[in-house]
Design a protein around this nucleic acid. Structure first.
Lengths: 333, 333
DNA sequence: TTGTATGCGTTATCAG
DNA sequence: CTGATAACGCATACAA
């Protein structure tokens, strides 16, 4: 591994000059610049990032924390962040946290010791107080953490509302909601949106709302219980697509026809929603865009040292698929 | 940010002594050790990893390259690698390569400049020659790269064979195969396994084998074409579970009943195979185990400097689900 | 336009 | 048992 000194020796200049041509700052004669470049080529020299980082205190690394990498929403998000990170020559570190507070703190510490330049956090357990100690930029993604921390989210409440309005529009008379985790604000917002749409309905019954995790299995069980206890339910808004898939599965085990006996709407708009049978109607987030935006914001904060708190909220969009495509609609086509 | 010198000053010792207590090597008096520890606590000192890395030339980071993070197989694999990495206090870096050779080379260079300690590669485009230049340990995962590079794989050929034998056993008369990418050796092996099982059948027709990518959409299109051109096909072995889901979807669009008119087997055993409707029979890999094994091997190589080439092959296991559960079988239960 | 000297925060060697 | 000090590889004042 050649060092800057080897290059300097070969080009018969000082290391300072080599450094200048590498970083393109300071004046350097065209001739010597050429000599240096030749030496670099010949020796196959590449700067040692670690040494550079030690000096600059920066590492050109950013980290993304996600609660569950096996939920297809997060790989899609990670892709976006990674793409932007690469574009700006940052190394991307992905951390799976299980939303476990200790794991997150361990990661935070380990990465700060490595001089990570910033964090993008999907977390519903890290607190504002704790993050205040972090000396590098932080952006919350998918879930707000506090007003003092920049965030990129979507309009979950409106999305929840849209989901139930759609179910009503296709003729559902009794609409239930299988919500995501109670301590997660996007799940809470989605539930609020649901309530906005149904609380004034004569049939509304608070037992139609159950909470769980953002998982397939739990949603499946919850749906089976719900549909068994309340056979009149003919529409379910699931907290996310994974849960929506769980509901589809539950309906299949119960022999309920989808969408005629039961219509289902998910949330997120992951690719998986199109791969299930029937395909799942969903409130789609612009997943790539929010990931990219968060990465953009973070890198901007890193490079400008501007710590203004920014809050971006994107819009969601209902995508109709087979799980809510009823006969009357079918005939129209 | 306190440095080792601050600690030394406060404990009234030299930095060397502080270093000794931190790294627990060399002799140090119990009393001074206590003083140093107190100083560390009071100053909230944590060693700067970057400086440490500059000196040691190691970074306690390992990287995993995967071709497509949105294929659920890879998040499950990544989880395993991450768990083991954390257990040994390595930072885990995940790189999505699209199997693009330039992207992989960029990553390889960038990470080597950061003194990454080793690579786990899922790649069917990196060559042995290129990797020979890498000066840190490398383990190939999921796909062999060459005999000179340690690898962790499964018995793909036998798995392919098991898939078709199962289809035959449930009564399929015409079995097709939608294979994964041609230049990917696990896809080739799976196809070989398929051929092992069908090539001596009187009905065998090489048009029953088509190649594609490991994607949902392509498999879906391929299945539609196959089932349209050859309506006699009553069993399909898909190259992986994502493709299997594509086949299920194709069957649904064509109004083919699964499993009675068409039975389907996938490969991998990802969680998604249980979430589709009907649930997908699959040749399951021990995903977590192979990921964990690869991480184990890599870290062992890093820490022992033992560069013996190791080759681990795990066994796969057929898991029967609804997509191959025919009437006669159903009656038996 | 170029070179010298210094420091970034550690670890390890070698005296003491 | 402990302390000075020289690396690790680079970038930047400051001088020339």
């Amino acid at each position: 591994m050649a060092t800057i000194r080897d290059v300097a020796k070969r080009a018969d200049v000082s290391t300072a000059t080599v450094s200048r041509v590498i970083n393109q700052n300071g004046y350097v004669n065209e001739d010597t610049k050429k000599r240096v470049k030749e030496a670099i080529d010949q020796l196959n020299y590449v700067p040692n990032e670690v040494a550079r980082n030690l000096f600059t205190g920066r590492s050109e690394m950013i980290a993304l924390f996600v609660p569950d990498i096996t939920n297809p929403f997060f790989p899609e998000l990670a892709r976006a962040v990674e793409d932007i990170a690469n574009r700006y020559h940052y190394t991307f570190v992905l951390c799976n946290t299980d939303n476990d507070i200790d794991k997150q703190i361990d990661y935070l510490n380990a990465l700060q010791q490595k001089s990570v330049d910033g964090f993008i956090l999907v977390s519903s357990s890290l607190t504002e107080e704790y993050l205040q100690q972090i000396r590098v930029p932080v952006v919350a993604l998918d879930r707000m953490i506090s007003n003092c921390i920049s965030s990129v989210t979507v309009n979950n409440r409106l999305g929840g509302r849209q989901a139930v309005e759609h179910l009503k529009a296709i003729g559902c008379q009794r609409i239930a909601h299988i919500a995501g985790p109670e301590h997660t604000n996007n799940a809470v917002e989605r539930m609020r949106g649901y309530l906005d749409g149904v609380k004034h309905e004569a049939w509304f019954n608070s037992s139609y709302v159950v909470s769980g995790a953002y998982h397939f299995d739990e949603a499946r069980e919850a749906a089976i219980k719900l549909l068994t206890d309340y056979p009149e339910i003919d529409g379910i808004f699931a907290g996310n697509d994974l849960m929506g898939a769980g509901v589809l599965n539950a309906a299949a085990s119960l022999g309920k026809n989808i969408p005629d006996e039961l219509a289902v709407v998910g949330f997120d708009g992951v690719a998986m929603a199109e791969t299930v049978t029937p395909t799942l109607t969903t409130v789609a987030q612009p997943i790539y865009d929010i990931g990219a935006k968060a990465a953009d914001m973070l890198i901007k904060q890193i490079e400008t040292h501007d710590s203004t708190v920014l809050t971006e909220e994107f819009n969601v969009q209902l995508i109709e698929r087979q799980s809510t495509l009823r006969k009357e609609d079918k005939d129209e086509r």
